[in-house]
């Protein structure tokens, strides 16, 4: 199968390169990338780790759509065209700069705020399955960046907090054990926060974990208005 890969390095700039990869059953795009690195060109840079869709390293654009390379089966395609994610600066080949993305995540205070807990003598808090369900789906974000790469609001405003960070803010605001809602709402209601979203819904469409960041953003908006 033909692998058409958009490559980039400082010396040669950006260019397309095609590799021929032998395919066996149950092979994924990531297996193909490793085949290339191990047999054809060991300079091919891409990120990969768990190969089971839980670490979030390997999101790239495959035939136009951001997907996790590790869980995309080759049997779906006749040939594959692989590019780095949009809205991220490229470092080399398919590897992009994620520091800014993680910095935005940090900005929304994505941790449980509860002044009553004690480090030395922790006490179990009660949370019913229903209370757990209220936020659980939003804990599943693997920070792969797929949502941010397709977000038109993120494309036009670099400082936009973006779907992943905002979904994370909602995850904690919806947690029955949390006491930091006001702080977080103050952060997300700034000009680069929830009001930047234009409901293009692309984030919810590409999310490999079927989280609905778009929904989280709208629910945060509702909360800020209260």
């Amino acid at each position: 199968m033909k692998f058409k890969i958009k490559r980039f390095n400082e010396k040669n700039g950006s260019y397309w390169q095609t590799f021929e990869v032998p395919v066996r059953t149950a092979m994924t795009v990531l297996d193909g990338l490793f085949y290339i690195r191990e047999n054809l060109d060991n300079s091919l840079a891409f990120r990969a780790s768990c190969r089971m869709g839980i670490c979030g390293s390997c999101a790239v654009k495959i035939n136009g759509k951001p997907r996790l390379a590790c869980e995309t089966q080759l049997s779906k395609f006749k040939e594959v065209k692989i590019e780095p994610l949009d809205n991220f600066a490229v470092i080399k080949d398919l590897v992009t700069e994620f520091e800014g993305f993680f910095a935005k995540h940090k900005k929304v205070k994505p941790y449980l705020i509860n002044p009553k807990i004690s480090y030395e003598n922790p006490v179990e808090q009660i949370q019913t399955p229903k209370q757990l369900k209220a936020y659980y789906d939003f804990t599943l974000c693997i920070k792969c960046g797929a949502c941010y790469s397709v977000c038109p609001a993120g494309a036009t405003l670099e400082s936009y907090l973006g779907p992943a960070a905002l979904a994370s803010a909602y995850r904690f605001n919806a947690d029955s054990r949390d006491h930091g809602k006001e702080e977080r709402l103050k952060i997300v209601s700034q000009p680069n926060g929830v009001w930047r979203c234009h409901s293009a819904m692309e984030c919810s469409e590409v999310c490999p974990k079927q989280i609905e960041p778009a929904k989280a953003i709208q629910l945060l908006r509702r909360a800020t208005l209260r």
């Binding site: 136009g64 949009d86 038109p152 819904m201 590409v206």
Partner: peptide, 18 residues
């Protein structure tokens, strides 16, 4: 040309946005 980010088609929803 960050505004080009508006015109990248990916899903029906991205298309209606455009």
């Amino acid at each position: 040309m960050r505004i080009l980010g508006w015109f990248k088609y990916r899903s029906p929803f991205g298309m209606t946005f455009m």
